[in-house]
Amino acid sequence: MLEGKVKWFNSEKGFGFIEVEGQDDVFVHFSAIQGEGFKTLEEGQAVSFEIVEGNRGPQAANVTKEA
């Protein structure tokens, strides 16, 4: 699992990017966010995740919000 911070997330469109120190930003789709209820992320929020190869390159999977 990697750790990063949410760079930005558009809850209307359901996607955004996660910043990872020393690496390129990683695309995140709302469907990759773990948990119940409305799936969104806040700018600057700490998250842990895995990287998988998507249709358009690397993207986040199994995203969990850090306490």
Rank of each mutant, 00 (worst) to 15 (best):
I51A: 04
G16R: 00
F49Q: 00
H29T: 03
E21F: 12
G14T: 02
Q45A: 11
E42T: 13
K13F: 08
Q34T: 14
E42H: 14
I51Y: 07
F30I: 08
Q59T: 09
A60M: 01
N55A: 14
Q59S: 07
T40F: 12
G54Q: 08
A67P: 13
E19V: 13
A32I: 03
V47A: 03
D24I: 11
E53Y: 14
R56P: 09
I18Q: 00
G35Q: 11
I51S: 04
G14Y: 02
V52F: 11
N55I: 13
P58E: 06
W8N: 04
G54I: 07
P58S: 08
K13G: 05
I18G: 00
F17K: 05
G35F: 08
K13V: 09
E21T: 15
G22A: 09
V20M: 12
I51Q: 06
N10A: 08
A60T: 02
K65Q: 11
N10T: 07
A67G: 12
W8V: 04
W8M: 05
G22D: 07
E66A: 15
K39D: 05
N62D: 05
W8D: 02
E66D: 14
F30M: 08
E50N: 07
K5D: 03
V28P: 00
V63H: 00
A67M: 10
Q45H: 10
F30T: 06
E19L: 14
Q34A: 11
D24E: 12
S48I: 12
I18M: 03
N10K: 08
G44W: 06
K7L: 06
N55W: 14
K65H: 09
K13W: 10
V20P: 03
A67L: 11
A61L: 08
G4N: 01
K5A: 04
K5R: 10
L2T: 12
N62M: 11
N55C: 05
K65D: 05
E50Q: 05
L41R: 01
F27Q: 02
G37M: 06
E19H: 14
E50P: 01
G35Y: 07
M1N: 11
F17S: 03
G44V: 02
Q23T: 10
N55Y: 14
V28S: 02
A61N: 09
K65C: 04
F15K: 02
F9P: 00
F15I: 08
P58I: 11
K5P: 02
L2F: 13
V6F: 01
E36W: 05
A60F: 01
F9G: 00
E3W: 15
P58D: 05
V47Y: 02
W8S: 04
E36C: 05
F38Y: 13
E42K: 13
F38R: 11
Q59N: 06
D25G: 04
E50D: 11
Q45E: 10
A32E: 09
A60K: 01
V26D: 00
I33V: 09
R56H: 14
M1L: 12
F9Y: 09
M1H: 11
W8Y: 09
V28Q: 00
D24W: 10
S31M: 09
Q45G: 07
S31K: 10
A32H: 07
N62C: 04
T64K: 15
V63F: 00
G14R: 04
H29G: 03
V52N: 05
F9C: 02
S31Y: 05
K13T: 07
F17C: 04
V47S: 01
Q23E: 10
V63L: 10
E12W: 15
H29Y: 05
P58H: 08
V20T: 08
A61I: 11
V52P: 02
F17D: 00
E66T: 15
Q59C: 04
K39T: 06
E36I: 07
N62S: 12
M1C: 05
K65N: 08
F15G: 02
P58W: 11
E12A: 13
A60R: 01
G57L: 04
V20C: 05
A67W: 11
A67C: 06
G54E: 07
S11I: 13
V20S: 08
Q34W: 10
V63Y: 00
H29P: 03
Q23I: 12
P58Y: 09
S31V: 04
Q59P: 01
T64V: 13
K5W: 07
V6D: 00
S11E: 11
E19I: 14
Q59D: 02
Q23D: 09
G37E: 09
I51F: 06
E53R: 10
E42G: 11
I33P: 01
A61R: 09
E53L: 13
G54K: 09
N10W: 08
E19T: 15
V47E: 00
A32V: 07
Q45Y: 07
V20G: 04
G22V: 04
Q34C: 05
F38P: 11
Q59R: 11
G22W: 07
S48L: 12
D24H: 14
F9L: 03
N10G: 04
F15H: 09
S48N: 15
N55V: 14
E19Y: 13
Q34M: 15
I51H: 04
K39I: 07
R56L: 14
V28A: 03
L2Y: 13
R56E: 08
N55M: 13
F49A: 02
I18V: 05
A32L: 03
W8G: 02
K39M: 08
S31C: 05
G16M: 01
F38N: 08
S31N: 08
Q23N: 11
E43Y: 13
Q45V: 10
E66H: 15
E43M: 15
L41A: 04
Q23H: 14
D25I: 05
T40V: 11
S48T: 11
E43G: 14
F9H: 01
L41S: 02
F49G: 02
L41P: 02
G22Y: 08
Q45D: 15
H29L: 07
S11Y: 14
E50I: 08
G4V: 01
F30R: 14
E66C: 06
M1P: 14
G16K: 00
E21P: 14
V47K: 00
K5H: 09
T64A: 12
V63C: 04
Q45F: 07
W8T: 03
F30A: 11
I18D: 00
V28H: 00
E66V: 15
E19A: 14
G35D: 10
A67Y: 13
V47H: 00
V47W: 00
G37S: 08
K5I: 06
S48G: 08
I51M: 10
Q59K: 08
E50R: 04
P58V: 11
K13S: 09
H29N: 04
S48Q: 15
K65S: 10
F38D: 09
H29E: 03
G4W: 01
S31W: 09
Q23A: 10
A67I: 14
G44L: 05
E66L: 15
I51P: 04
V28T: 04
V63G: 01
G57N: 05
E42V: 15
I18S: 00
G22N: 12
N10H: 08
E12N: 15
N62A: 08
E21Q: 14
E36T: 11
E21D: 14
E53N: 12
F9Q: 01
V26T: 07
K39F: 05
Q23R: 12
E36H: 10
N55H: 12
